[in-house]
Design a protein around this nucleic acid. Sequence first.
DNA 1: AAGTACCA
DNA 2: TGGG
Length: 209
Amino acid sequence: MVDLFDTEPDAPVDLNGVTIWSGWLDDAAQSAMLAELRDVARAAPLRQYETPGGQKMSVRMTAAGEVGWVTDKAGYRYAPCHADGGAWPDIPASVLAVWRAVSGVDRDPDSCLVNFYGEGAKMGLHQDKDEADPRWPVVSISLGDPGLFRVGGHSRKDPTKSRWLNSGDVAVLAGEARLAFHGIDRIKFGEGEVLPEGGRINVTLRVAQ
DNA sequence: AAGTACCA
DNA sequence: TGGG
């Protein structure tokens, strides 16, 4: 019999091989994570990077862990220090806990990217392929306003599928989908309830080195 | 090269 | 709004 008041987590959804857990984090877990992410941004301020082609990205980024992803005219890379010259802060415990629960591997990540999407921010279709060994999964956590996530295949021209990611959702890029092209087409600025000022935060965990 | 645009 |  179906229990309409069942409180079990939702079953995961598959989007072109990416596993999406809707509502993985409850309100309390999201608040606790946000508090830790604010500390990360205090230690390593959010900044807008430039693509190798010289165009400014709309998303503001920072990172935690041994290395953080950066880009400028010299290219995409993982760097051991942030723009102010200091080491990146530690990966927050609440974020590590999500990795341990969903990654399916017994090695911890060495990099945690924190991306902030303000009004109008988006991220074009791309592959995460700057890591030394792409066989390790990537785990993505969404907080704040909804974001329209699009996933394709290994070629930029492969067909894509889209789905709205909401605050508390967790996505895992593993196996065949680890190198899938993906991006965020738009956000619903101000629609979320977790960030009072509006905007979307995406946290991604990787084994980069 | 993680950019912008546009279409129905 | 959803798509590509």
